[in-house]
Design a protein around this nucleic acid. Sequence first.
DNA 1: CATAAAAACAGAATTGACTCAATTTTAGAA
DNA 2: TTCTAAAATTGAGTCAATTCTGTTTTTATG
Lengths: 204, 204
Amino acid sequence: MSGLRARQKADRHRRIIEAAAELFREAGYEGAKIEAIAAQAEVSVGTIYNYYENKGDILGAIVSLEVNEVLNAGQGVVARPPANVGDALDTLIGIYIEHSLHYLSKEMWRQAMAISTQLPDSPFGQAYTALDRALTEQIRALIARLQKIGLVRQDIDGAALGELIFNNMNMMFIEFVKRDEAKIPELRAAIRRQNRILVAAIVV
Amino acid sequence: MSGLRARQKADRHRRIIEAAAELFREAGYEGAKIEAIAAQAEVSVGTIYNYYENKGDILGAIVSLEVNEVLNAGQGVVARPPANVGDALDTLIGIYIEHSLHYLSKEMWRQAMAISTQLPDSPFGQAYTALDRALTEQIRALIARLQKIGLVRQDIDGAALGELIFNNMNMMFIEFVKRDEAKIPELRAAIRRQNRILVAAIVV
DNA sequence: CATAAAAACAGAATTGACTCAATTTTAGAA
DNA sequence: TTCTAAAATTGAGTCAATTCTGTTTTTATG
């Protein structure tokens, strides 16, 4: 019977994540010391490293929660997209962007992105890449849906288009989190302006 | 007479950069300890920090050399672009990509990119953003040139298009350096495929 | 229920980036 | 040449992430 041990394990995982999330929010990523997280979670430093490979992985677990929520919210748009290509893209991208700062501060995003490129083979690095792929996939699914409805030309290379849109959005988001004074509406407007070129190329 | 002091300063800068470049190449960024760089450059640890704010800035100086060289090489293409929109873009992007691993290993790129998002306000963070902007600007200049020649439609939003192309390329490059087994020809082919959609939308 | 192997834990020790107070070097005025 | 203030250098010390090693807890078996 794998009762107690598994339960304690899950419990410790949860306590560590909750403690870290709180301290990251309060003190920032760098400001949240591992010792403090350990104390708050009522485990030892060694135990944290038994659960996570490094500090970045703890942040990674939090980021994954966030992105999965966003992916979930995006499903609705893919299922029933606005009847206009530009609006459909804008709505989906809007969901991504508007959710993005719900749990994670810009500083946390910066750290998460940095770690994912710095250590692409760490657990979090791989998870982050998978999340990016899932987002790209969702955009591609939206395009396929629009093609089926007949709003987008059939001869468009959906895969390449999805990547193009995601890559541009993602890069814009990276620049957005790098500047504390950057605002969401401006980010969305800039992306809309860029996508306008694409939309013109793909509408029936 | 600002002789001796200025000369020694320049000399120490050079020695630090050379030592760091060598050790980064040999041992990787993390593997190159500041003490080792200091020893190799025949200065003390403190002196290094008198010249650079942090370890990342040393890498940053090396990256800047590289990117400026690339920008220079790109000038030629902008001045005399191939007489075909797709080829023109491919040639410019080809220059960027083919040069990219000349001085810098993928691991060094990963570190540089990570630092630039992690510390966007550090000297290197700002320099990196400026370099990105310069590359975007060069792509935009190419488009303007192609518009002038009459290969690209006049009513295209050149600024937005330049950003779109750069952002996509840059994101693809980030994914490229994250995977050690990724190869340059495949990277170029993937970007060409993505750009094909755009090219179709903008040629006269 | 006793017990040995396996898993998880604790926290002291290590490591390496970065700081800082003391010392040395330089520029240029007298 | 001598002297002094400013600039630069030095390296031992600090701090925090990560590692390591013994100890404790859990599981499963007889």
